[in-house]
């Protein structure tokens, strides 16, 4: 299964490059950094059915760092929610695939996000709803590390622990970079694990959040913590722009950057190990 997941990661990465390269610009860094998480959730762990995308009691994924929409769309298309060709409509006028996640436009998107911090509170509300319905669903929510500077993330963290939302599993895409500079230089969020632990969460630190086996093991561990009655934060130490060297090398400059179709093609060859 893990070998398959690695292949799936390559497929998702290539599709991200294709659609952003087709458009010419996009939030490439923070899309490439979360691919392993998306592969594990959508292809291994989540109780979902692309044929019934709104099925009651399904597991849900809230991408609170809504600008990673293209990565989620690539995962959804690979999982069969809509044809892969639709990825090429990213951010074109009238598209169902806007830069930031929109539950009313895109099949398979569970919550609208884009104004940072809000999606994480929405996820807490969804987890509360699932708990009240007692439907056994697991609610997964991803926040960015820059996003974690938003006070609302911590308001939601406090609420989720106080209300015993053991069905909520959070992830931090800890790639250490944000738009203006390194997170540590702009307004440091460290020590991140200690903060979440202090907020009453179980904390799992994944040394390499771009190692699909480590991510898979961490999600399984997080699910096993449900009985603690506490939410769990999985900190994914990732690389922004992971998988394409020139994008990785841009550092903080890779948050939202130009990508030509030629660059995308070269990147796909690099991802496939063909260069």
């Amino acid at each position: 299964m893990n070998k398959d997941l690695k292949e799936i990661c390559k497929d998702i990465r290539c599709d991200i490059m294709t659609c952003i390269g087709h458009l010419g610009v996009g939030h490439i860094g923070g899309c490439l950094s979360i691919v392993e998480l998306l592969a594990v959730l959508y292809f291994e762990e989540m109780n979902i059915d692309p044929a019934e995308p709104r099925k009651a009691g399904r597991d849900r994924f809230i991408c609170s760092k809504g600008h990673a929409g293209p990565a989620v769309y690539a995962a959804l298309a690979n999982r069969g929610y809509f044809p892969k060709e639709e990825l090429l409509t990213l951010n074109q006028g009238g598209t169902h695939l806007p830069s930031h996640c929109d539950m009313n436009l895109t099949t398979g998107i569970d919550m609208t996000a884009g104004s940072l911090g809000q999606g994480f509170s929405c996820a807490a509300g969804i987890a509360l709803g699932s708990k009240l319905e007692n439907d056994g669903a697991t609610i997964y929510a991803l926040v960015g590390d820059g996003e974690s500077q938003e006070g609302q993330v911590w308001e939601a963290g406090m609420f989720a622990a106080a209300k015993g939302l053991g069905n909520l599993i959070g992830f931090t895409d800890y790639n250490k970079l944000q738009i203006d500079d390194a997170v540590a230089k702009v307004n440091d969020i460290a020590p991140l694990g200690d903060k979440w632990a202090a907020f009453g969460w179980n904390v799992i630190d994944v040394e390499d959040g771009n190692d699909v086996e480590q991510v898979s093991a961490a999600v399984k561990q997080a699910k096993s913590y449900r009985s603690t009655g506490r939410p769990t934060m999985v900190i994914l130490n990732t690389v922004k722009g992971k998988g394409v060297k020139w994008i990785e090398d841009l550092g903080a400059g890779n948050h939202n950057t130009n990508v030509s179709e030629e660059q995308a093609k070269a990147a796909i060859a690099e991802i496939r190990g063909e260069d």
Partner: peptide, 8 residues
């Protein structure tokens, strides 16, 4: 935002 999540 929690309310929005509950509504969803």
């Amino acid at each position: 935002s929690i309310a929005a999540g509950l509504a969803s």
